[in-house]
Design a protein around this nucleic acid. Sequence first.
DNA 1: GCTCCAAGTTTGAGCGCTCAAACCACCCTA
DNA 2: TAGGGTGGTTTGAGCGCTCAAACTTGGAGC
Lengths: 338, 338
Amino acid sequence: MAVPDPATLDSVAAHAGVSRQTVSNVLRHPDRVAAGTRERVLTAIRETRYRPSLPARQLATRRAHAIAVRAERTQDGISGLVLDAFYHGLAEAGQDNGLRVLLYAQPADEAAEVALIDELVHTGAADAVVLTATSAADERPAHLRESGTTFCAFGRPWGHDDEPHDWVDVDGAVGTGLAVRHLLDRGHRRIAYLGWPEDGADPSTGTDRRRGWLEAVGAASLDGPPVEARSLNQAAAAEVAVAALLARADAPDAIVCASDTLALGAHRAALAAARSARPATVVGFDATPVAAALGLASVAQPIDQAAHLCIDLLTGRFEAPDRPAQGLLVAPVLHLPS
Amino acid sequence: MAVPDPATLDSVAAHAGVSRQTVSNVLRHPDRVAAGTRERVLTAIRETRYRPSLPARQLATRRAHAIAVRAERTQDGISGLVLDAFYHGLAEAGQDNGLRVLLYAQPADEAAEVALIDELVHTGAADAVVLTATSAADERPAHLRESGTTFCAFGRPWGHDDEPHDWVDVDGAVGTGLAVRHLLDRGHRRIAYLGWPEDGADPSTGTDRRRGWLEAVGAASLDGPPVEARSLNQAAAAEVAVAALLARADAPDAIVCASDTLALGAHRAALAAARSARPATVVGFDATPVAAALGLASVAQPIDQAAHLCIDLLTGRFEAPDRPAQGLLVAPVLHLPS
DNA sequence: GCTCCAAGTTTGAGCGCTCAAACCACCCTA
DNA sequence: TAGGGTGGTTTGAGCGCTCAAACTTGGAGC
């Protein structure tokens, strides 16, 4: 069976007995069309199964109606699901705003990535980019601003407040604060922190999470001084670090961790150390299925919300390219074991 | 500073003193252009910083040069497909073949998804789709074939061999077979299987993995008959199931699991059961960081390779739309604990 | 010296849409 | 009754590319 030629603006117009432009107006500026005409055209659209051609629209408007986001090279995995959720959120929010989401493979380094983004934007494949996994040493934002590329970062401009750009981030300090208060409520009095090696130096996600713990613990005027340990983001390393912590005289009875990977290690160390007594309670970060499987509480990032806000910032900027840069912080929630 | 108008085919042509079409040929059909001219044009392209306009090309060729893939709604389970790796593989392989990867948010149900895919294809946003998470009851392939949409599934057409389509899948049976042989090599003689409740009924991923275990165990002529247990894909449920298994008179000394989630539960049960003796060895599936953290061997799916093959099948089909459907199985490998 | 051919190059047309400007009734005002 | 509006609609032009067909050459062949 022969498939009929797909309908175009012209064929729909002929079908409805109006002009091309009127059909276009019905779709893009309904208010410019008289109600009667509009109905007639809508019927024609339905009858002809008309679908607007995206490329034609892109060519005429010089807008791609798409944003690009990086597909990470395989990463440590436990928190890989977080990224999946972010992709879903972007795609969903994008669809609601007429934006498609384009994936690009993470290139070898930041320079190559900036070049690739430039390519995507200048060939008309995307209008803007969502930057993920930003850090203090990140060169991408500066380059993108320079080349005039519209973008929104998921992650704060750590230490680059002088070069403002749009960003959305999760307030890690609030998250660890929640964890501490949860533990306090349950009677814990020696609440330690297990973070990453670099925490406390340059501003970073780690510093932020640590600060939340420190402030919450400080505000509670507990027994001794706050205790902490650091470990690479690997369960085995974390297990070793926490074992040492638990062997100390002032061993903690609870541990707030910077990630679920660390929490997994901490959990094992706690179990091992507590042959007889009650094991130290561990709280994780990211609320991955691992934490749920182990019965650990964990701080959940509202990834979906963050993704929606990125899209909001971007669409806002499309409409007002010169408005000042905005940063948005969203609060995490604590997921308790069921 | 004023940004110069972006170069077009015409402006490059003028710059090089040739015609529009010659510039186009230099890019798309270099062999049709004399070497000297080609050099001159390439120089002009460089000097003018020319970037071809994707939308214009799409409009003229009626091809989107893009494929769509679904962004999953947040899923649970430690394992399952960690999609990031798949996305990255698709994006990478796509870039090598001039295909962009478009993400669409998972709709409420399969009917809505088919409608959305139809929309993407007919508006010229994508040329084809990669279907993920296929199952025996999946209605999507049938609908897509019917509407003539090009697609490739990541996952076999379980029980629908009469309606062939392009697919790529990981050979789960080979994976569990590897696990069994690994255990045999290490002296285990009573190797059980921990699968999902539905395994063995309709053909499915679970059946496939179970079969690999059964065949490998059968081929080894071991002590007693093969022992197995089933559990929902949750660590807690798996722990209960395995505890029962280990309490039996013919308790196994090793357990091959259908997922790392199950392996986590099995591991905990094994530790608990073995107060004194050596605990049963557990092997997982998917090689997630959890397995690595617990020191368990686990079957790793070559996700990246699978993604590349999906792109290969798709590009092949673009060139020969009528070639018969192809199915490709890729072999997993066993990741040993380090 | 003429035709014929292939390699190389140019021209014309069109993909389906949106913008801006032009047009057209028709009503209102002076 | 002529002179403005004002919603509603149409027209013309063009976005930047590719396809197919038409056009140039400089040999090779006779």
